[in-house]
């Protein structure tokens, strides 16, 4: 299905947020997920189902002051 991830349209064969994380090889990394404006904890990823056109943000800590 088509998702908007970090501002880019992506056609992915996924069912849950956990699948999205796995698709990008981000398991075990310090990633934070927001889906349609709601922050999802790690515990929610496996049960949080994605739907077409969902706006997903995958963010992390970077250097900054």
């Amino acid at each position: 299905m088509e998702l908007v991830i970090n501002g880019f349209r992506q056609e992915l064969d996924v069912r849950t947020i956990q699948d999205v994380i796995a698709h990008f090889g981000l398991e075990g990394k310090p990633v934070v997920v927001e889906a349609d404006g709601a922050v999802l904890t790690k515990e929610q990823w496996a049960t949080a189902e994605v739907r077409t056109q969902m706006q997903i943000e995958l963010v992390h800590f970077v250097g900054g002051g």
Partner: peptide
Amino acid sequence: FAIRRINLEAT
């Protein structure tokens, strides 16, 4: 730290 989008081209 700052918070930024992950670069999905280079995870």
